[in-house]
Design a protein around this nucleic acid. Structure first.
Lengths: 348, 348
DNA sequence: GTGAAAGCGCTAACAC
DNA sequence: GTGTTAGCGCTTTCAC
């Protein structure tokens, strides 16, 4: 069945393509009877406007883009999923679709951005997981295409972003551990080329300095955000002979924290009692671990929504007043740092 | 900066738009010197083909679509995420992008399909979570647009699908429980309008019948796939006075199983020892629960990939030989059905 | 080898 | 109110 077009409706009703277009678009200068007739015929033929043609003509795609990062360590799944849901829910609410892409094969991630922007595939972009020096931001700044960013960079480009205060988050977690009496606090950090890793490192340093505690560089190790790496590194930290082992281990995300918990248990130690563990993100499984994982919560879904709302404003040509938003993370305390002494208390 | 087009390159090189197009497309009938010149100029201008225009002309969008189901109970997150990753990785490997959409506002889910198909936004679609009678399948069958389906329906339409054998999966889990000596096995089923729920119910029935066990209808309850519902229903099952409580509870997915485990613990009972629990899906947190959750694993990511590969075949106009694929699920046994008697054995 | 012309389906001047 | 014309950027006959 050849699909309905303005032309097919025009032919069926005897009006011109232009009139049909205007009637369907709801312009006021169309005779009411004509409009009804055209509407009816459109309905009858099951007319749906060809989005490709419309996009070409109006230079607007009604689509926002998201490129999944694949450089560096793999993005933790739960994180990504919440973010996409947040973006999608907000975008589709106003009739925008979400185009998800990834670099593949010979194509670099930046190539994907060039393809989406140059190919006019999207009206705007959402960036996630920023690098200290981020080529994507630098590139987009030159294109004029609207974009919003989750995270910050060290560049001076003036873009709209939302970030969660990593300094405050890591600091709160570290202070929590210090208050519990910990002195030797290890930190498995994500690669420091990632902007958020730098901020969190800062928070760690600040808290230690404020408490007058020395920083033992041997307790700071870089991990790749995977559970496996968290486990390997934690084991090494606990088993090294020449250095006093840490009594607490913080990690750059919850996946690594899960790995660390496993390593601790395999060393015959008890999580929370012998060695405390603190994660980051508060993924959904964090509370179901045993013991529950103390971690820093980031409202990912919410951020996705808010960023998208801002992006849609930019696309509409309006100004966004709050160009820079720094959100407070929330420390979530569970058994991995504070053992539940009376587990029966929970039962009710 | 006005962006590069065939026209701008034509003007700069003195050739016609046609020749530029052919040179860039790699046709053989272009003079080698001309081609080099044009390529160079394209490079210099940073030319990227306008995807909208190309799509309009070729009637091909290089995009596949996925509509997130929002009718019925919410889809469990980890599931969705893995599936999207599988599709995305395969699609982008051949230069296709993934368009993700959702129904919103007054628009029904079917409207979204009509919009994507009629508006020529995608070259093909991936359907997930089928209903016993699925309007989407019925609709797509009339459009001629390529599509592939995760799951089956009761319609006679001849579509390409992959499904995981739910009868076998639920049967294996049930038999596992029976072998452990359980006789009163409760089942919290997803709504039976979902096709997979029907199959799994069948597997449960089959296993019970084969073992000569009676089926107590009071132990079969419909849940909405949320953790909350799993918890509420499990509690009711355990606390009912007039009926002997179940010694084992199976649920339609892992989220409900987690809820059931909580209910059991709150009733002062031990999961795995007093009451066994079996889930479905094997989401990432299943193994980190305490005790670990016995469940049925489905290779979601893999299925997403395979479906996408098939869809791309269909889009390319080729036939797909394996139109119907039924995969075997894998029973994953953990502490929620078989308590670890010597927990120290794990430490090494 | 290269170019002119037509058209994908739509919208937007500009006439009448 | 309605129709004519032009054009978004690209590909594709069909001439020469």
């Amino acid at each position: 069945m050849p699909s309905a077009t303005l032309k097919s409706i025009a032919k069926a009703t005897g009006f011109s393509v232009t009139t049909v277009s205007r009637a369907l678009a709801g312009y006021g200068d169309v005779n009411e009877a004509t409009r009804r007739l055209i509407m009816q015929e459109a309905q009858r033929q099951g007319y749906v406007p060809n989005q490709q043609a419309r996009a070409l003509q109006k230079q607007l795609t009604q689509t926002i883009g998201l490129v999944l990062p694949n450089g560096g360590p793999r993005f933790p799944n739960p994180f990504f999923e919440e973010f996409v849901s947040g973006i999608g829910s907000e975008a589709t609410a106003v009739g925008f679709d979400l185009l998800v892409s990834t670099a593949s094969g010979a194509e670099s991630e930046l190539d994907v951005y060039r393809r989406l922007v140059g190919g006019r595939r999207v009206d705007g972009l959402v960036l996630m997981r920023t690098w200290v020096r981020d080529a994507r931001v630098a590139y987009l700044a030159t294109t004029g295409l609207p974009y919003v960013v989750f995270g910050r960079t060290e560049s001076a480009d003036d873009y709209v972003y939302i970030d969660v205060d990593g300094v405050a988050g890591q600091r709160a977690l570290t202070e929590h551990l210090i208050a519990l009496g910990h002195r030797r606090i290890a930190y498995i950090t994500p690669p420091l080329t990632l902007m958020f890793a730098k901020y969190r490192m800062q928070g760690y340093h600040d808290a230690m300095a404020d408490a007058g505690l020395p920083l033992d560089e041997r307790l700071v190790v870089e991990g790749d955000l995977t559970e496996r790496d968290g486990k390997d590194i934690a084991r090494r930290l606990l088993q090294q002979r020449d250095v006093a082992p840490p009594t607490a281990i913080m990690t750059g995300n919850d996946s690594m924290a899960i790995g660390a918990m496993k390593a601790i248990q395999e060393c015959g130690l008890r999580v929370g009692e012998d060695v405390a563990v603190g994660g980051y993100d508060d993924v959904s499984s964090a509370e179901h671990l045993h013991p529950g994982l103390t971690t820093v919560r980031q409202p990912i879904f919410d951020i996705g929504q808010r960023l998208t709302r801002m992006l849609l404003e930019l696309i509409a040509g309006r100004q966004v007043s709050a160009r820079a938003t720094l959100m407070r993370p929330e420390l979530v305390i569970r058994g991995s740092t504070v053992p539940e002494r009376i587990p029966d208390e929970e039962r009710r």
